[in-house]
Each structure stands twice: as structure tokens, then as C-alpha cells.
Write a protein that binds this DNA or RNA. Structure first.
Length: 284
DNA sequence: CACGAGACCTGTTCGC
DNA sequence: TGCGAACAGGTCTCGT
């Protein structure tokens, strides 16, 4: 499910969940997000969800800690606690919600963290790919990630240099989180369309002009995704509307919004890839 | 180094 | 209607 915009949407909601239900005597409108809440217990319903440490150590160590902040690094959600960091990766089908602790748990709930104020944070993940970590140093989990697309240090010149030093095809390269952190299958297809670059173009064959267009396109589609609260496809993701703005993703056979040529779907690096064969040509 | 295949999982949709 | 194949927003590991 989630790429950078979906994770960012959740991060912002965790800071200001004003529309979420709250509990007994509690005053929802005055709740400043989950920041400040203190953890009483953690209930691990699917052991493998906890990547580090063991499920037992996780429950023991997280007890009593307080949330001091929420942030994002690539597709990782970071919940800062006094003394430690709780990281969540939603992978394909993960989702987080906050609710009163008296609610019955739902199908596919994998982890529930209860707060002393009677609320709780629940991790739901149909496909069980999602993982959480509880560590001293978040860098031990996110250390290998490439730059965030919105990092100011990521200049067009630096991005051009990154592209020129790889012979890999651009689409799998954009999905490589050690190259750039946060871009997934939807936004890579949309960005390549916007930049007019064929998904199989070797990165080092993208010229200066193309690299400038591509970086701008990545930022543009991610920003638009965030503005629309992410993309909701199938049953996943409440609230997001970016799926209504797709130009190519999951639009195989439909006319290109720019030239009306039918959008094509192909496999690139085992991932479904959508592009316009007329607007996105390899100029080698 | 770059790539494909297979694994990890459950659910939905599509074709016969 | 039923049933298997293909597919899904991600990432890891292995073999070539």
C-alpha cells in the first residue's frame, strides 16, 4: 500500500488525529495527537511483526515509555519515545489507527499498543509483510536509505551525478530505497510519465535536462499525493484521493492524457509498469 | 554489478 | 458456480 505520501499522511494524522474517536470522558477535540501519550502495554498478535528485538523483549522494553514525536524517513514511520525509537514499515498492506482501547480488535490486527489514557495505537496488516522495530538508534534501521526526495541537499546537480553513476534501468533504480527513499511503484510510474522518460532507460543515459525534469517530477507527484492524502486503491487507505489523478498507473489500454495513445503495461524488474509508448521513448 | 526468480502472506479479480 | 491463475502500494535472499 503505502509509499511516501501515504506514510506522510499517517504521520500528520498521528500528530493531529482530531477526527479520530476517543474515549470515556475524553475530549477528542483537545487531544494533541498521540504525542505525549504514555504506553502501558503492548499486545503482539503476530510475533513476526516485531523485527527487533524479540516480541517478548519488545513488550517489556516499550512499557512505560512516552511518545515525544512522530516523523518519517523514506517509507519508515518513526515514533520517538523518551529513550528509544519505535519504527513502523507498512510494506504492502499495513495500516495504523488510533481508537479507544475498549473497541474489539479487528481481523488482521497484528499489534496493539495501549496508552495510559485509555486509547491505543493498532497496527493492522492483512499480508503480514509489515514490520516494527524498537531501537536505541533509528539509524540502525534506516541507515542504508538514500536521500529523502525532499531533502534540500538533494540538488539537481547531485541527482544528475547519482543517475550518471548507475547503468541500471531507471524504474528499478527509483524503487531502490538505497538510491532514493520513499518512491514506490505508483509514484515511479507517474514521475517517469511526467518527465517523459521510458522506464527501461539506463540511468546513465538520461541527459542533464532529463535528470532535472525527473527530480522535479518526483517531487511534484509526491507533493500532489500528500496534498490528496495519498492514494486509496481497493480496500486500503481511507480518505486518500490521489488515485483519481493517475495518468498511467493501472490505466493500461486507456488513452494517454497527453497524446491519447493507449497506455501500455509491461513488467520491469518483476513489477507492473505503466507508461505511454509515445510520450516516453528511449532516446539512445 | 545488474538482473531474474523465489520467498514472505492474504485477498480479490479474471479467464475458462 | 467453481477453480486455478494472475495480480496487488514492498523488500529480502539467492543464483547467474
Amino acid at each position: 500500500m503505502p509509499e511516501l505520501p501515504e506514510v506522510e499522511t499517517i504521520v500528520r494524522a498521528l500528530r493531529h488525529p482530531t477526527h479520530w474517536p476517543f474515549q470515556a470522558g475524553g475530549d477528542l477535540a483537545l487531544q494533541p495527537g498521540v504525542i505525549g501519550r504514555q504506553i502501558s502495554t503492548a499486545n503482539v498478535l503476530w510475533d513476526k511483526t516485531v523485527a527487533f528485538p524479540s516480541a517478548e523483549a519488545f513488550k517489556q522494553q516499550i512499557h512505560g515509555l512516552q511518545i515525544t514525536g512522530v516523523s518519517r524517513r523514506g517509507k519508515f514511520l518513526q515514533i520517538h519515545l523518551n529513550a528509544m525509537t519505535f519504527l513502523v514499515h507498512l510494506r504492502m498492506s499495513g495500516d495504523l489507527r488510533v481508537e479507544p482501547d475498549v473497541e474489539p480488535l479487528k481481523l488482521h490486527d497484528r499489534l496493539a499498543i495501549t496508552f495510559t489514557d485509555g486509547s491505543r495505537l493498532v497496527f493492522n496488516d492483512t499480508r503480514k509483510f509489515g514490520r516494527v522495530w524498537l531501537v536505541q538508534d533509528p539509524q540502525s534501521v534506516t541507515g542504508a536509505l538514500g536521500p529523502d526526495p525532499f531533502d534540500e541537499d538533494l540538488t539537481p546537480g547531485m541527482f544528475a551525478g547519482m543517475l550518471s553513476s548507475s547503468r541500471r534501468r531507471i524504474k528499478p533504480l527509483l524503487l531502490d530505497q538505497t538510491f532514493i527513499a520513499g518512491v514506490g511503484n505508483i509514484y515511479s510510474d507517474e514521475a517517469l510519465f511526467k518527465a517523459g522518460i521510458h522506464p527501461m532507460t539506463p540511468a546513465n543515459r538520461i541527459d542533464e535536462d532529463g535528470s532535472v525534469r525527473l527530480l522535479a517530477a518526483i517531487r511534484s507527484v509526491l507533493n500532489e499525493g500528500i496534498e490528496r492524502n495519498g492514494a486509496s486503491i481497493d480496500w486500503v487507505y481511507r480518505g486518500g484521493t490521489f488515485q483519481n489523478q493517475f495518468n498511467v498507473y493501472q490505466r493500461a489500454g486507456q488513452p494517454c492524457p497527453r497524446c491519447s495513445t493507449p497506455i501500455q503495461r509491461m513488467l520491469v524488474g518483476q513489477r507492473g509498469t505503466h507508461f505511454c509508448p509515445h510520450c516516453q521513448v528511449m532516446n539512445l
